[in-house]
Design a protein around this nucleic acid. Structure first.
Length: 823
RNA sequence: GCGGCGGUGGUGGAACGGUAGACACGAUGCUCUCAAAAGGCAUUGUCCGUAAGGACGUGUGGGUUCGAAUCCCACCCGCCGCACCA
């Protein structure tokens, strides 16, 4: 072979320049003439520009780019854009620490990402690039906020909200992990504050039901189902005659209503003080409530916390038994779920059981298994049709499922309750007391009250400030020139809203802006939007399973209801990539000291090797540890392909499959077609790029083993390898394809496997005795069953194990194996 | 506790119910070379055996089947999400 070497530093910039100057990956919103190719929108989650890109970005965009290239070459008009999720706390904290303005550090990081994407050769339509911190973008974020506001989907309300004392801002429920701030890890406090919310709970049912219409990984839809937390049951009214008030409770087990022997309210319930007033427990209740309110989210929420509580000194009426049952206040009841009060059914709820034991309350069994025992010392919580109601008046004897229905109907007739559904999902808290975010376009007027900024005044620009330090209110509040405005209505003195939006608002619609990125009349033209959306393949990390992916679904549904778009789901298919762990198998982090940066890797081995390696490392949806030696192996493989191409470069010609190939040539032609089939299958569905690349390696190995095969066959095999490799290693794929054929590989259609070449004339017949392989023999493809049986029985290995035994049965699987069953 | 995912050589991982371990890393040997780098070729699940060959092997225990890593049941272990949600 020639003594030249594969040199990515020569090859990669050459192709990058060509693609940039020819704007190869740009796609028009108005296809010219007779372009009737189907559209395909391939999108990776946009990066958050903070510092330099890391190895996870390389994997994310290598995955998406491979899919985009495959779709292009299989006849699609592919939209594959890029942008930056530019607002956010890290840039602001960086500013507090260093004094560097968020805008400057963010723009520097964006430049680093742009450089990286170019040096990796990602096929991006750069004409659609956007960043969420630019007024041209956030003008429309504000516009959407106001559209939600007009329809009552954005509202301001005082509520008990989660507050991070370190970041000095409120957080959405979704941003609190185990009682701690997801960003900084500080314990979160509860504060009673007036804040902005989006009414996502209005969409709970649709967000749940429509999960069935999208092709997402099971674990992600499961997480969303879980998070929405829909429970069906009943609302049942318990009346407190002493004060003359009805207290509804929510229960998923109305069939156990006859077993409700006490009643519990959350410490935050507004009636707790009034109910206890004048009773012997007044002081105790007061103290208990105060203590509960000051407890941290983490302590209060601990599942194994012993049950505590205080009697209220009052009773309510159990609506089915008519009994007076005692009322309590206890912190295991949460104000934010259901009605903030529960019926206590100790026999059939473990928490109620624990409470009843602690307070010596009656435990009354009202459901029993048809056969089997009720467990001792714990609640019997099972709920199936194999269980019967007992001690339940007219409902006794019914099975638990039917009994539940019957009791709901009875409650409905008597006006004491009705079927009801509850959700765990809370409304999305979107306001933040921080600087580096999209300003909320609302003005507070002394006489007109809350006034939306008129559309003609958008965007409300984020002003420059000098002090980013959080002080419990937005740093914007100090920008007096900006804050003080005239009321758009009455022209009187007014003040701007100084909170900014959660950055998840920005990223809830960016994928739509890509479709019509330069529109300055509207966030998008609906016809253009509907022609590209929904995203056909979305690719990103699983860490957004709930936050970004649910907020975006909510946005699309809300905007669809306004007639602004004509689809119900933003992301038709989702792929969640696994993480790349450090060489030690531990998640990469500065503290673990195991961070692998993509830039030196690309510099040393080339972008193609880096891209192929992160795809070859394992199934792309699974985590995998970094291995430099495996990366070197991939680099070696690329060099092997390059040398084959180099060797054929003097004989460049069409890469057609040679007709009538025989011997070595036929072997190569078959292997090439086998690889086409393998790679094509791997590109669809599960994205098994690791095995696709392995198939190309096999093809390349096969060429090395048949270097004497005739030129046409070698050229076909090498060109095919380059063509198949192109989505993973676009520079080398282009280089080798050009060396061998003189053509541009990305302008070639994706190769189609020749079905007649996928099967050979003969095959190796596996000969088993009692399911164990005892021999192998070459047989003609398509040979009849009796012929295969005869061949198998004649082998030495089979005879040795059949000898002296009675043949009970022979199983023949044509073109595969024969299994002789002996006794 | 609820929901989801996983457990295969020294390592990463392959395997429509049909040859377990493709491909790659690592290791060993050979080769090219004055030499090295780089390359090429070969071997490589474990155990017994010089070999032919055999036995054992996909977390554990059962089951279905001519045949199970794959399907079913019961467990064990690990990871992820949710969780005093009534």
């Amino acid at each position: 072979m020639a003594d030249q070497r594969y040199d990515p530093k020569q090859i990669e910039p050459k192709w990058q320049k060509l693609w940039a100057s020819e704007r190869t990956w740009e796609v028009s919103n108005e296809p010219i003439g007779t372009d009737e190719r189907p559209k395909s929108y391939v999108l990776e989650m946009l990066p958050y520009p903070s510092g330099e890109p890391h190895i996870g970005h390389l994997k994310n965009y290598s995955l998406g780019d491979a899919i985009a290239h495959f779709h292009r070459r299989t006849g699609h008009r592919v939209l594959h854009p890029m942008g930056y999720d530019a607002f956010g706390l890290p840039a602001e904290n960086h500013a507090i620490n260093t004094g560097e303005r968020p805008r400057d550090s963010t723009n520097a990081s964006i430049a680093a990402f742009r450089r990286a994407f170019n040096s990796w050769g990602i096929s991006i339509d750069w004409s659609r690039e956007l960043a969420t911190h630019e007024p041209e973008y956030y003008r429309w974020t504000q516009w959407i906020f106001l559209a939600l506001y007009e329809r009552g989907l954005a509202y301001r309300k005082e509520a008990a909200v989660k507050w991070c004392p370190n970041d000095q801002t409120v957080l959405a429920n979704e941003q609190v992990i185990d009682g701690r701030c997801e960003r900084c890890g500080h314990l979160v406090e509860i504060r009673q504050l007036e804040q902005w919310f989006f009414r996502i709970t209005d969409y709970a049912d649709r967000l749940l039901d429509d999960l069935q219409t999208i092709d997402w990984p099971e674990h992600v839809t499961a997480m969303q189902r879980n998070w929405i937390g829909r429970s069906a049951g009943a609302e049942v009214t318990f009346r407190c005659d002493e004060v003359g008030i009805d207290y509804p409770v929510f229960t998923t087990r109305p069939d156990t209503l006859f077993g409700a022997t006490f009643f519990v309210m959350a410490p935050e319930h507004p009636d707790v003080g009034r109910l206890a007033a004048g009773t012997e427990y007044e002081q105790q209740v007061h103290d208990y409530v105060n203590r509960a309110l000051t407890e941290s989210v983490e302590v209060r929420g601990a599942a194994d916390k012993p049950k505590t509580g205080v009697p209220l000194g009052r009773t309510v009426t159990n609506p089915v038994t008519g009994e007076q049952i005692p009322m309590f206040v206890a912190d295991y009841v949460l104000m934010e779920y259901g009605t903030g009060a529960i019926m206590g059914v100790p026999a059939h709820d473990q928490r109620d059981y624990d409470f009843a034991v602690a307070f010596g309350l009656e435990i009354r069994q009202v459901v029993e298994p048809v056969d089997g025992e009720v467990p001792e010392g714990e609640a019997f919580v099972s709920h199936t049709a194999d269980e019967r109601l007992v001690n339940s008046g007219e409902f006794s004897g019914m099975d638990a499922v039917a009994g539940q229905q019957a009791i709901i109907e009875w409650l409905d007739r008597e006006g004491k309750g009705h079927a009801s559904v509850n959700y765990r999902l809370r409304d999305w808290l979107v306001s933040r007391q921080r600087y580096w975010g999209c300003p909320i376009p609302i003005i507070y007027c002394e006489s007109c009250g809350m006034v939306p900024v008129p559309e003609s005044d958008l965007p409300v620009r984020l002003p420059d400030v000098d002090d980013y330090k959080p002080k419990g209110r937005s740093p914007l509040a100090a920008a007096e020139d900006w804050v003080n405005v005239r009321c758009p209505n009455c022209k009187g003195p007014a003040r701007r809203e100084t909170d900014t939006m959660d950055t998840f608002v920005d990223s809830s619609w960016y994928y739509m802006r890509y479709c019509d990125p330069h529109n300055d009349k509207a966030p998008w033209d609906r016809h253009v939007l509907d022609s590209w959306m929904p995203v056909d393949q979305y690719i990103g990390g699983v860490e957004h399973a709930i936050l970004h992916l649910m907020y975006s679904r909510f946005f699309v549904k809300a905007l669809a209801d306004m007639g602004l778009l004509g689809f119900q789901e933003p992301f038709k298919a989702l792929f969640t990539q696994g993480m790349i762990l450090g060489p030690d198998g531990v998640k990469m982090s500065k503290s673990a000291g195991n961070v692998i940066s993509p830039m030196p890797i690309v510099d040393r081995y080339g972008a193609d090797a880096a891209r192929c390696y992160v795809l070859f490392i394992g199934p792309p949806d699974q985590d995998a540890a970094w291995s430099e030696s495996s990366l070197a192996g991939v680099h070696k493989f690329l060099g092997r392909l390059w040398r084959l191409g180099d060797g054929l470069s003097g004989d460049a010609g069409p890469a057609e499959q040679p007709a009538g190939a025989e011997g070595d040539a036929l072997t190569l032609v078959r292997k090439a077609n086998w690889a086409i089939d393998k790679v094509t299958t791997g590109m669809t569905g599960r994205f098994t790029f690791n095995t696709a690349i392995a198939a190309i390696m096999e093809l390349v190995n096969e060429v090395y083993h048949h270097l004497d095969a005739e030129l046409g066959a070698r050229r076909f095999a090498v060109a095919t390898a380059a063509s198949l490799l192109f989505p993973f290693a676009p520079h080398l794929g282009s280089e080798v394809y050009e060396m061998v054929t003189g053509q541009r590989v990305w302008e070639e259609p994706w190769p189609a496997a020749d079905a007649s070449m996928l099967q050979s004339d003969t095959f190796e017949l596996v000969c088993q005795v009692n399911g164990k392989v005892r021999d192998r023999v070459i047989a003609q493809s398509g040979a009849p069953r009796d012929e295969l049986e005869r061949l198998c029985m004649a082998t030495r290995g089979v005879q040795a194990h059949v000898d002296g035994h009675e043949v009970a049965k022979v199983i023949v699987v044509p073109d595969k194996l024969v299994n002789v069953v002996v006794r």
